[in-house]
């Protein structure tokens, strides 16, 4: 892994859920450091599959996926978990916060299993507090358990968790689907400026083309490449 390696690169990737399904093909997708890319496509266009390949929960049949220079296809599932924790910050569609843990602990959890991210964040707790404050979560809410926060606040916690420790790549899966228009824009601005500040590349997946204005590049995924093939 060198610092000049792209944050993410997929080349000649072919993946299929089973033999009869139409395979998903991604010939070439490269995210340079600091680049902001929006992937647009209707549901069923293979967005989730592509994310699975980036996260390392799925392995392509052929082709190569590298994250921060690391060849994910050559690693064991456990090592892929490690690479993801270290180099990819993820904002899940469902946020996936631990409801009984405090907002602060949820953010700090991202550093727990990522030594390099931890090293980049010497005073982790202060950094987490600042990150939450920068993303608009009031100071007093940092110690409340995540389950007690509003949806909007949970989203900020999820974003802070993805951004802390400056991972090379930030991946967001429909992060604004539960927000209204005004909040959507505010949230995107906050996340994007934060990512830019720390030099993280962004890969955002959405069906909402109004988000395009925030990005350097937009990639459209075609329809018809159904990942959810009919099973009956």
């Amino acid at each position: 892994m060198s610092s000049s390696a792209p944050a993410l690169s997929l080349s000649n990737v072919v993946f299929s859920w089973d033999r009869h399904a139409h395979p998903i093909q991604i010939p070439n997708l490269v995210l340079d450091r600091g680049e902001k890319v929006l992937v647009l496509g209707p549901s069923g266009s293979g967005k989730s599959t592509m994310l699975g390949l980036v996260y390392g929960t799925l392995v392509p049949h052929s082709g190569r996926v590298t994250v921060a220079g690391q060849d994910m296809t050559a690693l064991s599932a456990r090592r892929r978990d490690g690479v993801r924790a270290e180099h990819v910050g993820v904002i899940f569609q469902q946020f996936n916060l631990i409801p009984h843990a405090s907002a602060l602990d949820n953010v700090l959890l991202a550093l727990r299993f990522a030594p390099q991210r931890r090293k980049r964040t010497p005073d982790a707790e202060d950094a987490a507090r600042n990150m939450l404050a920068d993303l608009g979560l009031p100071e007093t809410d940092a110690c409340r358990s995540a389950g007690q926060l509003s949806v909007g606040q949970q989203q900020r916690v999820a974003a802070a968790r993805a951004l802390i420790g400056s991972p090379e790549l930030l991946v967001a899966d429909e992060p604004t689907s539960s927000l209204d228009r005004a909040n959507q824009n505010r949230f995107m601005d906050l996340v994007l400026s934060q990512a830019q500040q720390q030099g993280s590349s962004i890969l955002l997946v959405s069906h909402d083309e109004r988000l395009a204005k925030h990005f350097d590049r937009v990639i459209e995924m075609g329809s018809g490449q159904s990942e959810d093939h009919m099973s009956c």
């Binding site: 899940f92 996936n96 631990i98 727990r112």
Partner: peptide, 15 residues
């Protein structure tokens, strides 16, 4: 759910 989140954060099986 909690276990899945931990794993998403990079927790190894041992953890």
């Amino acid at each position: 759910r909690e276990m899945a989140i931990l794993r998403a954060m990079g927790a190894r099986p041992g953890v």
